[in-house]
Design a protein around this nucleic acid. Structure first.
Lengths: 220, 220
DNA sequence: CCCTATTTTTAACAGTCGTTCAATTTAAAT
DNA sequence: ATTTAAATTGAACGACTGTTAAAAATAGGG
């Protein structure tokens, strides 16, 4: 017994210190990728922000592309869980007989509210994550990442929306869904434009405005 | 008379050849900035795409930031003209007495249609320009450029929208306007997502869908 | 055609890029 | 406490970055 393990298998649990640095590196990468984009954020910038040597970023994150994908995927699962939990809760509360469709507004709220809540009140990391997703959503280079991280949940909601709007066709619903996601992400990337155009000092919570806008848009 | 001209003034008309290369450089920059973002597109990439030596890009475009700003501004004026002409034409056709407000849908159409038409049927350059504007709109780094190039026209339309929706407040209208711009830009940046989610082969013309979505959103 | 302002090329500058590798430090497992 | 896998550092690699200066080619204005 106790035969030699394969070389590529872990033989020791990672230390708590290393787990902490790894998270610090991912947090720094998240922030800098969000602020400056994939090409604009350098490994050395990320290392400096994490208080660490450059080579260590490669050690924990692999190649720059792999690091990017990892950082995107990290919170995607949590976000999906929040969204699906909200949807399940709404369904459970609606009726015990599960066939009837949820009202459209409630479906959209289950999709939008977790994202907006986290990016607005989840601290600097979630705020950066929102802007990071905007990069992923707008550049076909990240299509694979988007499909892997967000399409499964998106399909669940698309189906639910289709149930709430029985006579709408698939392509139209998909288009409206992308419009909605874009408008949602604009709260992360373009708040400065809203403030500038309205000549106000700051923009308050715009969740209700977004929900109104998208619900009416879907029904059109 | 015929005194010495100041050194920084032109003493000769630029040759047609140089005007042509300058445009080739700007076109290449437009394409590459759109595809890879500001940091992802190198001066040398742009030069190669334009069939020119790297130093010539700096000669015609100045610093990289100045080149970016120039390329954004180049078509912005034409776009503004198209939008304002459409608005003026709609007003002229509506009534000779100019006080009455245009219908909301017509105002939005005057704003959206020129952009969509150009980016869809204006060739590869305009298609790239649409994606370029998406970069500008989502990164606060380009706030000054956005203000200079797009805010004046935006304010005209905001005012027109406010006239069509007398009881809506300014901040709400500004928010909806940014939602609309984001959705509009998503047609340039995220068509691949619509196609992927709807599991169709290609996405047809989605102008009507966008207009429906935004008009209903504003009215909500 | 000639002069020379302008355009274009060539070459080089000092930095930064992502990545790799050997040496060193840390800490898990025994 | 000892062993040693894993984490971390320091340094270096070649390639690429934006920009500049001078040399060469081009073409406008007389």
């Amino acid at each position: 017994m106790t035969e030699k393990l394969h070389k590529n298998q872990r033989q020791r649990a990672p230390s708590q210190r290393s787990l902490a640095t790894r998270d610090r590196i991912f947090d720094a990468a998240e922030q800098l990728f969000a602020d400056r984009g994939f090409e604009g954020a350098s490994i050395r910038d990320i290392a400096r922000a994490a208080g660490v040597q450059g080579a260590l970023v490669s050690h924990h994150g692999g190649s720059k592309e792999a690091l990017f994908a990892t950082v995107v995927a990290r919170r995607a699962e949590e976000l999906s869980t929040l969204r699906l939990q909200a949807l399940a809760a709404a369904k459970a509360q609606a009726q015990s007989d599960a066939e009837s469709a949820l009202p459209l507004r409630q479906v959209l709220h289950c999709f939008l509210a977790p994202f907006i809540h986290q990016t607005l009140h989840g601290g600097a990391n979630w705020s950066a994550y929102g802007r990071l997703i905007a990069h992923v959503s707008s550049n076909p280079r990240w299509q694979q990442i988007a499909q892997r991280c967000f399409d499964p949940t998106a399909r669940v909601f698309l189906e639910e929306i289709a149930k709430a709007l029985p006579e709408a066709d698939t392509q139209k619903i998909s288009a409206c869904f992308v419009f909605m996601v874009s408008a949602m992400l604009s709260l992360c990337t373009s708040r400065w434009r809203i403030v500038g155009l309205s000549q106000a000092e700051t923009a308050e919570d715009l969740t209700a405005e977004l929900l109104d806008f998208c619900e009416a848009g879907f029904r059109a």
